[in-house]
C-alpha cells in the first residue's frame, strides 16, 4: 500500500517506520495518527485499517487481498478508497485511512533530510535529526 501511495515509500522503510512506532509508548510515537486525534494505542488503528483494506479488496476482486492485486488494480482501489467509494468497507472512514497511510508514506519519502535532497531543496536544520525517526 505504501508504495502505491507514494513511490519510494517501500525503500524508504515505511513498513519499518509504522511497525517501530506502534511498538513504543504513544507519548513517544511520531506518527501522524497522534496529530489526527487517533486514540492510542495506535496499533489498533493500523490493525483495523489492514482488515478493512483486505476485506474491501477481497469483496471487490474475487477474494484477493490488496497485496495480491495487479498494480493497476491497486491504483484503482486506492482511488476509490480516498473517495469513500468502496463497498463493504468497515471501520474508520476509508478517506481517513487513506489520509493517514498516505501521510506515513509521505513522511518517510519527503519528510526526511534525504527527502528534501531528493526534491532539490535545502533542509536547513537548526538541530538536525540524528536519524529519520
Amino acid at each position: 500500500m505504501g508504495e502505491t501511495l507514494v513511490p519510494g515509500a517501500k525503500d524508504a522503510g515505511v513498513t519499518y517506520f509504522v511497525d517501530q512506532q506502534i511498538s513504543i509508548p504513544p507519548q513517544e510515537a511520531l506518527l501522524e495518527a497522534r496529530i489526527m486525534n487517533v486514540k492510542p494505542p495506535f496499533a489498533n488503528f493500523y490493525r483495523a485499517a489492514l482488515g478493512a483494506i483486505d476485506g474491501a479488496s477481497s469483496a471487490r476482486y474475487g477474494g484477493r487481498n490488496f497485496a495480491q492485486l495487479a498494480a493497476n488494480e491497486q491504483h484503482e482501489f486506492v482511488d476509490l478508497m480516498r473517495q469513500n467509494k468502496l463497498d463493504g468497507w468497515k471501520g474508520a472512514a476509508a478517506s481517513f485511512v487513506y489520509f493517514l497511510l498516505r501521510s506515513d508514506a509521505v513522511d518517510v519519502v519527503y519528510g526526511t533530510m534525504d527527502g528534501y535532497a531528493h526534491l532539490g531543496v535545502p533542509y536547513q536544520p537548526h538541530i538536525a535529526p540524528t536519524r529519520s525517526w
Partner: peptide, 19 residues
C-alpha cells in the same frame, strides 16, 4: 531548547499523544 529538533516527524513529540 535542545529538544527542538528540526523535523516534522520529530516535531510531533511536543504535542499531546492521541485523544
Amino acid at each position: 531548547l535542545d529538544d527542538l529538533i528540526s523535523s516534522d516527524i520529530w516535531g510531533r513529540r511536543i504535542k499531546p499523544a492521541g485523544s
